[in-house]
């Protein structure tokens, strides 16, 4: 079921989403080669809790950490570890959620550590640009396929692939609500959007093929061909006259 939010509910949701935004800005300023992914996870947990919120990911479906930290060929859901050091030249996806006042916020960025290769840099920039391409001109009169199809066309025109096995999602009182928001589809097709619909739009794109697999830990999703992958996500609300990004 899709839960449409009133403007008052969206105002409450802003708080969780701004905490997510600020947490990612904090990570951006601190993340560097030599720190472990467990350290980054600790920063995130402490920061979110210092704002009076809870990290939504912790314990979700048994997930053992507050943050998903996904390096290079890990697409999403990389589990932080004290043994996993971040290295120069890596691209590191940091995906996190916060819960406060009954609502969740969700956002992800892929950070470039030190000097990265041109191909990784372009991949990361394309994931971000694909998000904005997807939401450009979207209103409550648009269809879900307008977002999905435009992301797919944009990404594939640059020679990359969009992951099929994972999608964006509705968000609100639950971290994952309906509808699923794929990064592939046909413009003009699919569910009609609605004034007050809150969704997480999150292009996950690979340098190589779109096939992925889940590791034995049950969480870590990796590209099958081990090509690098980039992720960019924001929670947005659809209004009659456009889209508002809540996590920026």
């Amino acid at each position: 079921m899709i839960f449409i939010k009133t403007p008052e509910e969206v105002n409450v949701m802003r708080k969780a989403n701004l905490i997510v935004r600020d947490t990612l800005l904090m990570v951006r300023d601190r993340i560097k080669a030599g720190v472990t992914t467990a350290e980054v996870d600790r920063w995130v947990k402490e920061y979110i809790e210092s704002k009076g919120a809870q990290p939504s990911c912790l314990g979700y479906g048994g997930y053992p950490a507050s943050t998903c930290i996904s390096i290079d060929d890990v697409v999403v859901h990389g589990i932080p570890s004290p043994k996993k050091y971040i290295e120069e030249g890596q691209i590191v996806g940091v995906d996190l959620c916060a819960y406060i006042d009954g609502y969740h916020g969700d956002s992800a960025r892929t950070f470039m550590i030190g000097k990265v290769s041109e191909e990784k840099k372009r991949l990361v920039e394309t994931a971000e640009a694909a998000f904005f391409e997807g939401i450009e001109g979207i209103t409550s009169a648009s269809r879900l396929g307008d977002i999905s199809g435009r992301i797919q066309a944009f990404v594939e025109a640059r020679g990359y692939s969009v992951v099929r096995a994972l999608t964006g999602h509705g968000i609100g009182r639950e971290m994952h609500e309906d509808p699923a928001v794929p990064n592939y589809g046909v413009v003009g097709r699919g569910l009609r959007l609605h004034h007050g619909m809150t969704i997480a739009v999150e292009p996950m794109i690979n340098l190589g093929k779109y096939d992925v697999y889940t590791e034995r830990d049950g969480w870590t999703v990796r590209t099958k061909d081990h090509s690098p992958s980039a992720h960019y996500e924001n929670t947005v609300v659809v209004w009659d006259d456009g889209v508002e990004i809540l996590t920026m």
Binding site: E125, F132, E136, M248
Partner: peptide
Amino acid sequence: KQVFDSEIKSALR
């Protein structure tokens, strides 16, 4: 760095 029109539009809402 690249900034997008939809980013600005959202920020000014």
